[in-house]
């Protein structure tokens, strides 16, 4: 299953999308999401990147939780920063917390049963779980220089 993500300014209800040529003849799902940038997003993102840096500095040694926590590695920090940099500007920023296994957690939250929680490992594996009322999807994906479309989908359902 392949996914193509496109961004356009809509000027009419008629679209010409040559990027879809390879999928002509396939059955596809079309989701259109209003992607007006969130006001102040870039400043908020810069502040959050700084928070990540400070948090990683604080958690750079084992036992940072006064117990047996593993340190947050420079690789984990780099991946977390990159994910934030790749986050589209119309998507709310997550709350970021450290975890004792050395992973960094991003949380998108609207209510106790409407959230996405994602843990970033030092290998680039992203472990995620969402609660959307009675639905409880979860899984993992590998970070590879684009913000994972699966996570964008669930963030949209949580925050949309």
């Amino acid at each position: 299953m392949s996914t193509i993500t496109l961004r356009r300014n809509l000027e009419s209800e008629t679209l010409h999308l040559p990027e879809l040529k390879s999928m002509v003849g396939h059955s596809v799902e079309i989701v259109v999401r209003d992607s007006q940038p969130v006001p102040g997003f870039d400043a908020d993102r810069s502040a959050l990147l700084q928070t990540v840096d400070e948090m990683c500095q604080r958690c750079s040694q084992p036992g940072w939780d006064h117990a047996d926590a593993e340190s947050i590695s420079p690789q984990t920090r780099t991946i977390a920063r990159r994910l934030l940099e790749l986050l589209p500007s119309d998507v709310p920023l997550p709350v970021v917390v450290p975890e004792p296994d050395g992973q960094i957690n991003f949380e998108w939250y609207r209510a106790p049963r409407r959230l996405l929680t994602t843990s970033i490992s030092n290998t680039g594996t992203l472990y995620w779980a969402a609660l959307i009322d009675s639905e409880d999807p979860r899984g993992s994906c590998q970070f590879s220089e684009q913000f994972p479309p699966t996570l964008l989908y669930w963030i949209g359902l949580v925050c949309g």
Binding site: R113, L131, R138, S140
Partner: peptide, 15 residues
Amino acid sequence: ARKDEQLSLAAKLAA
């Protein structure tokens, strides 16, 4: 043992 399964259960308990 899987982290995503743990996160899912932890989210349900927290809720």
